[in-house]
Design a protein around this nucleic acid. Structure first.
Lengths: 365, 365
DNA sequence: CACTGGCACTCGCAGGGGGCGAGTGCCAAC
DNA sequence: GTTGGCACTCGCCCCCTGCGAGTGCCAGTG
């Protein structure tokens, strides 16, 4: 990262890899395995020894290639859908391929095409995320994914209470990134809208710029310090804030944006109704995705999760490419794509990488 | 509607029908057509003359039934998927069936099961709608649908401005039904958060309880009356309000909640990948649905839209059952289900009808 | 004259068999 | 270690056949 961040797009893309695996393969094994994966990505068909021998300039006869392929199958990199068919890569085979991928950064032209998607004025934070996942889908022909920051991790900008009925109060929380959360809470005693205004003014003066946890601590500290002073107002504010924060933690589900699910259905591997249903089920139950994404938040840089590595059966045959967007130096959210394991990694990785940088930049304006 | 509204659920269900059609059918034609539709709804298979003759106690030989069925086919009520198969109803056939359906109201027990879904505290208005479409899906085994009120039709409860950056301002509009809309707007000149508070206080005092149109008119009226008085504050408020209302009109899309799309995919008529894709496409492009729903808003009572009646190719083979929910006596939103034309109307209609009444009651608390 | 039983006919569908082609595994030769 | 050759395997496509459900038509009957 010697270059200015994201400006030129010429810096290398930092991909989390699994170093030192695949050590037992000879150079020729590697070349052939790489060729098989490449061909399979392009054709979606089992790859035969003849094809490799002809198309990939290795100067090896089909028979030699067959021998190597048999070894690779033994070692778990390839598999045969049935005897007398070509081979297709296993997840492990894809992992090998991805681990030594060195994707070229996007061309200036492509960068510009992506950037221009943000030129028209976008609405609130949710709108930015939706548009982001839409563009990821459009540029990868896969399903695009964007996830709002987990509310514990993000900083508040504003809190507001609106009185709906006597004790039903709508809490509106605006985060630093412009995402709006709202939730209904119940007050113990009736409160007027004016009173609610006082309370939100008070809370805003305290919590702006803090994370959920910090805000909690800060409130406790304030309580000790000023308790005598504000007393009544303070007690009410405490009660409301507690509830508001409680409920804020629950509402993670709605903050996952997946767009372009259909383009994934175009891929030949989902031509069967069963597979398609399984996939859409995974999309509908977002908790599964959230779990995966949470896991990826712990690592830095671009993550690639291939098939079974997600440890979820519903995602069999699917890969995720995820990156993070940041505010300051804090990782605040995730974006990426979901597609079949047989996706065009070298095309998609730079798109995800560049988009993540771009969104980060956008958020810091 | 002599009974107390929605209380007992014993009142007849008001369905919009097309009276006077089908007049050219004899009583026997009707019986047989009804039997064919009934059987097809249950079996999803083409219905033969023998089946009708045996199962529906008409005391007619298969041959006679065949003659009638041939007439019904001529008249456009039935069709044959191919020679030497049974008949299936056309959209017109379903229309006939639905027009003389007199669905039994839900049993108390069922009513209670639905009601209990609203016992746990729900979040904001959007959460209510999402839960509603979820329950519609669960009780019908089809896709459930709930649409937030069009913003022009709904009354405001609260408006709030939050300053994100110097001129980027987040508008938060809360409607009478507790649905929160938010949108980013740009101010011509920098405004402090305090100033924004003043503005929202001022606007709230004016627009609460008004519809979008009324609010606009009211603002104009205020301008003439008090212009000299508030002047600066007033001009700023005007500018912001105009933009807020403008953008409020755009954001219709996000307010359609469809849940349980997958249960529709279980139906045998969507076993082909092509049909399934077409359907999901229709779901993803919500504008199509919005158009249909807008049309239905003009009518009162329960609407049934069968297949081509929607005038949208994507909805071929699908029916919608829609009803409205109200606040006071105003229709404010739509809910219902989407399923294959071959759905169990007599089961689903009461569910939609009861749910609509229930949601209306909930909103008036 | 409406209804019915009978009969020939039409199709869709499932199952079996044969030919084709891609690809493999193995082996003997270089 | 590499290669060409060869027998073998299997999935796929296509054709054919038989079966069954259902139709249309017609002649007979109360």
């Amino acid at each position: 990262m010697d270059e200015p961040r994201g400006e030129t797009g010429t810096e290398r893309i930092g991909i989390a890899r699994s170093p030192g695996a695949h050590d037992r393969l000879t150079e020729r094994d590697r070349q052939i395995l790489h060729a098989v994966v490449t061909d399979y990505i392009a054709s979606a068909e089992p790859v035969g020894s003849r094809t490799i021998s002809r198309k990939y300039g290795l100067n090896l006869s089909p028979a030699s290639v067959r021998n190597v392929m048999a070894d690779l199958e033994e070692a778990g990199y390839l598999q045969q859908p049935h005897t007398s068919a070509g081979r297709i890569p296993t997840d492990k085979g894809f992992r090998f391929y991805v681990d030594l991928l060195e994707p070229r950064p996007l061309s200036r032209q492509e960068q510009e095409r992506i950037r221009s998607r943000y030129n028209t004025p976008l609405g609130d934070g949710a709108e930015v995320l939706r548009e982001t996942s839409r563009l990821l889908s459009a540029f990868s022909s896969l399903a695009g994914l964007a996830v709002a920051p987990r509310i514990e991790a993000t900083r508040f900008r504003h809190i507001e209470f609106v009185r709906l009925r006597e004790r039903d109060i709508l809490v509106i929380l605006v985060t630093e990134t412009g995402v709006v959360h709202n939730k209904l809470i119940h007050a113990d005693e009736p409160l007027t809208q004016d009173r609610l205004h006082e309370i939100s003014n008070y809370l805003n003066s305290i919590i702006a710029g803090l994370t959920l946890r910090q805000a909690r601590e800060r409130l406790l500290a304030e309580m000790r310090a000023d308790k005598a002073l504000y007393d009544r107002l303070y007690a009410e504010a405490q009660a409301l804030a507690r509830r508001a924060f409680e409920s804020a933690e629950e509402s993670a589900e709605s903050e996952v944006f997946i767009e372009g699910k259909l383009s994934i259905a175009e891929q030949p591997e989902f031509a069967s109704v069963e597979k398609m249903k399984a996939l859409f089920k995974a999309f509908e139950e977002k908790s599964l995705l959230i779990k995966l994404i949470d896991k990826s938040m712990q690592a830095r840089g671009l993550q690639i999760i291939i098939g079974h590595e997600s440890e979820a059966d519903e995602m069999a045959g699917c890969s995720l490419i995820l990156s993070h967007y940041t505010v300051g130096d804090e990782v605040v959210g995730t974006l990426g794509v979901i597609g079949p394991t047989r996706m065009n990694y070298s095309r998609v990785i730079p798109v995800v990488d560049y988009t993540a940088r771009l969104v980060s930049r956008l958020l810091e304006q």
